[in-house]
């Protein structure tokens, strides 16, 4: 089981490559620029049910998207939650 960490905008090359690699049971964590996905509740990644998707809270807050994320009921983790995800998933891959 892999934790995929995406650091770039939702429609970037890296985002599409992560999508090619992700398997049911994996998880996707959006950090840095990727948290702008919070503004787009219609993105495919929010609609699928194969794997959980999380937004990094600190990066959302910094960019002013925290309200958008809670309004759309998107799952967030803080930095400690990020560490917990890496405890839970044996492997991680960063897509940038």
């Amino acid at each position: 089981m892999i934790l995929h960490i995406l650091t770039t905008a939702p429609l970037s090359d890296a985002a599409r490559q992560a999508e090619q690699a992700i398997n049911p049971g994996d998880a996707l964590l959006l950090i840095e620029e990727a948290v702008s996905a919070a503004l787009q509740p219609d993105l495919d990644c929010w609609k699928q049910t194969d794997y959980p998707v999380f937004l990094l809270e600190e990066d959302l807050v910094a960019r002013g998207f925290a309200n958008a994320a809670s309004h759309h009921r998107l799952a967030t983790v803080d930095i400690e939650g990020f560490v917990q995800l890496t405890e839970q998933y044996e492997q991680s891959i960063t897509w940038y």
């Binding site: 650091t7 950090i31 840095e32 620029e33 600190e58 990066d59 930095i79 400690e80 990020f82 560490v83 917990q84 890496t86 405890e87 940038y96």
Partner: peptide
């Protein structure tokens, strides 16, 4: 045991900041 691979430049890219924050969080746990 954790290891970090950092491949972004400071003040150009967010990677080093994220890595530092993460480093402290793993030690805190």
């Amino acid at each position: 045991d954790y290891g970090l691979l950092v491949m972004g430049a400071p003040y150009s890219q967010p990677a080093p900041h994220s890595a530092l924050r993460f480093a402290h969080a793993i030690l805190a746990r």
